[in-house]
Simulated assay, not measured.
Amino acid sequence: MSRLFAPIIATSGCLALAACGGGEPRRQTAMTAPATPAASPSSTPTKAKAPKKKPKSHRFQAGNPNGRAPIPADGRPVDTSRPTHVIGNGTPRTCTSAAVVAAVARGGVITFDCGPGPVTITMTATAKVRNSRPRVVLDGGGLVTLSGAGKRRILYMNTCDRAQGWTTSHCNDQPTPRLTVQNLRFTGGDSTGDKAEGGGGGAIFVRGGRFSIIGSRFERNRCDATGPDLGGAAVRVLDQSRDLPVHVVGSTFTGGVCSNGGALSSIGTSWTILNSALSGNRAIGRGANPARGGTPGGGSGGALYADGNRFTVRIAGTIVRDNRANEGGGAIFFVSNDLTGTLAIDHSRLLANPSAGFETAGLPGIFYRGAGRPRLTTSTLRP
């Protein structure tokens, strides 16, 4: 049963704090242009050439452009100017599923050279991280879409999966691999029917190591429609080294459908979600968790489903809008079983996230069970 908390939203709908300011603008030194000799009366003026128009960028946009949350070091983009591997040699047809699978298995910093325009790579197999690789970075440059075609999960990392190499005796807490996806679009990922490690993770499944999502989009991903605890139409995470958080920065999650966690789902995992946007995601299971008698269970956390004991969720500079849950938490389902977990929402807006079953009084769109009350700073919550 949920614990009810008194409303903590100011009458105006938000609590005001001073905005963070930037540094002083750099001074510019005035320079005097050299004198130009006057043209003679007989000289013929030359028409100046119009500057060439810059081609329009085809790179996709992600995240909340108005988000101003500071980005910690672990959430900043990885420098990919000197890649370890490049997928493709300048044309879309050289960017294949097989090349992605092989590059991810080799590890290192991976970029794409698929031509100047957007390209979609339809995955015919799931790309899997080998646990002996210290770092794996996938950077799509804002032009690359990886598609599961509604048939399969797109990317997988599991430090406790012997098939990917057993590297330590404490697999769920080892510091590597460190997986980063940045400037990539993931669409059509589907893990339906794959119940290994409890299932979920339509586009990406991660257990162990470290994981970050930066400047990426997740669209129309899916996982199983019922089940009391599985979830994460876009991403499912179990365990992170030293209980450090998954960083999600400047990213978008939309159109995800799963039993729980229409976008993100985790057990015992902390999240730091900054300057991002989560909209139009759905938790469609029935019966909640634990499942009510006669139901298959599920239906909580329209955007985010977070369960476990001691973990934290921090959401800052982010918009969570128009998500819905058949049971609890149209926006966020947060349950810390031993009441040690904490939820903080800073400079964010949670709007129109209906919970068809239950939510915590005074927190529209949220079901919360944790340490004390959630901390809200300069944020708006509306039904």
Rank of each mutant, 00 (worst) to 15 (best):
T168I: 01
N323H: 03
A18L: 13
I8V: 06
T36A: 14
T380R: 14
V144A: 02
G22Q: 10
Q240I: 07
F218P: 12
A361D: 13
A163Q: 09
R207V: 04
D224Y: 01
T91I: 14
G215R: 15
T11L: 12
P296F: 06
A277F: 06
G285V: 05
G209I: 02
S276M: 03
L343H: 06
E219N: 10
G301C: 06
V119D: 10
E197V: 06
T80D: 06
I319A: 11
N221G: 10
R222T: 15
N326Y: 05
R222H: 15
A371I: 01
L381K: 04
T312G: 13
G341R: 02
L343S: 09
M123T: 10
S97I: 07
W166H: 11
G372M: 05
R324L: 04
G115D: 08
R26C: 04
R106E: 14
Q28N: 12
P296N: 10
I87V: 15
R59N: 03
G250K: 13
I267D: 12
G329R: 05
N309D: 15
C14Q: 11
G301Q: 08
G199Y: 05
L339A: 13
L143I: 07
G200W: 07
F333V: 00
S97D: 10
K128S: 14
T252K: 10
V129I: 13
S259M: 04
I284H: 00
L274I: 05
D243I: 00
R152V: 01
P77N: 05
G261C: 12
G268H: 06
I315N: 10
G67H: 09
R369W: 00
Q240D: 03
P245E: 08
Q240L: 13
K54V: 15
P77K: 06
A6S: 13
Q174P: 01
K128I: 10
T318W: 03
A16R: 08
I204K: 03
L244M: 13
S147W: 05
R133C: 04
R217V: 15
N289M: 04
Y305C: 06
V320K: 00
T120M: 11
K52P: 02
H347I: 01
S191L: 06
I71C: 03
G362K: 05
N337D: 09
I87Q: 05
D346I: 12
S12F: 00
S216W: 05
G142F: 04
A306R: 04
A225H: 07
R382H: 05
L278I: 15
L4K: 07
S266E: 07
A361I: 07
P7H: 04
S279A: 14
P83N: 02
N289T: 07
